[in-house]
Design a protein around this nucleic acid. Structure first.
Length: 298
DNA sequence: GGCAGTCAAGTACGC
DNA sequence: GCGTACTTGACTGCC
């Protein structure tokens, strides 16, 4: 078990997801921004290594507009050395990495152009992980997509579209149960037809539940990950009190997290803490999990 | 320098 | 049909 947090570290005074407006696009601006992002990513990973936080989600904004037609610049070649060096660091510290394209990446959209843009976006995410030289346990997670008023057809379209994807994408792509449309059971049904691993989101499961108890959910989701995929990835968050169901909490509740650790035995998985205060909660979770026999330390 | 409006992209939902 | 939330930060222009 490794513990991590997504994209942003507020303790070290830099960000690895600087971007700019499309209207301000220029090659110079892109190079300057990506250089800054990669430099900061390295610092975040160093912080994580020092604090034994060995799971991290790299921001999709690491290369702004990478899949947009405006971007004609060959950033892959230009930044090859930087990516390789970061990858070496990740491997040296035995870190687990994920990426999560945002809600515009929809491989089950009825619109072929949206599908095309989504494939380009997935290509970009896989390129980042490939350039770092990471193995196929580094994953790119997406949701099943829209319901389009007819979920069975939308799921069928996901399955067909998945089959048409390149190996480069398929070897990294995993699907996650979401908080409004596709449940764990529906994600597992898609796994049955495609073989795609299912990333289990504990919080989404509590908001949009197909009935499985935690133990059952972890057993079923774990079984969708094969050896080259690494162990199950789990997204963990809790409800912010006094807010609409689905709003992420500001900070982790260690009592609840400890209960989750206890109830999730004996399954092993890596936990991504989708909590607003990022590394601060991850550090608290690390302290709680370090007493757990599953917890991985270097 | 600070503030508020806005940002590439899509879908679902409420009015 | 239109505006807004999603989830969120941070860029940008205006004062």
């Amino acid at each position: 078990m490794k513990i991590g947090y997504p994209c942003i570290n507020r303790s070290i005074g830099c960000t690895a997801n600087s971007t700019f407006r499309l209207a301000s696009y220029s090659e110079e601006r892109l190079i300057e921004t990506v250089s800054k992002n990669l430099c900061c990513l390295r610092k975040i990973l160093e912080y994580n290594a020092a604090h034994n936080l060995l799971f991290f989600r790299i921001s999709s904004a690491i290369v702004p507009f990478a899949s947009h037609p405006v971007c004609a610049f060959d950033w892959r070649t230009h930044f090859k050395e930087e990516f390789t060096a970061i990858g070496k660091f990740i491997k040296k510290h035995d870190m687990r990495i994920s990426m999560h394209p945002d809600q515009f990446t929809l491989i089950n959209s009825p619109d072929e152009e949206i599908f095309g843009r989504s494939v380009r976006e997935l290509d970009y995410h896989c390129d980042v992980l490939d350039l770092m030289g990471l193995d196929t346990s580094a994953k790119v997670q997406i949701h099943v997509g829209g319901g389009y008023g007819d979920k069975p057809s939308a799921m069928k379209r996901f399955i067909e579209r998945y089959a048409s994807l390149s190996t480069k994408i398929k070897r990294r792509l995993v699907v996650e149960n979401d908080d409004r449309i596709y449940t764990l059971a529906q994600s597992l049904a898609i796994h049955e037809k495609t073989g795609i691993p299912v990333l289990f989101d504990v919080f989404h499961h509590s908001v949009n539940c197909s009935g499985e108890k935690l133990h059952d959910a972890l057993r079923k989701a774990s079984a969708t990950w094969r050896k080259p995929d690494g162990i199950l990835m789990v997204d963990y968050s809790i409800q912010k009190s006094g807010e609409r169901a689905g709003v992420h909490a500001e900070s982790i509740d260690i009592k609840q997290f400890t209960k989750f650790l206890r109830e999730s035995r004996p399954f092993d998985f890596d936990v991504m803490l989708e909590i607003k205060d990022k590394e601060l909660s991850a550090l608290k979770a690390h302290a709680a999990a370090s007493r757990d026999g599953r917890y991985y330390t270097v």
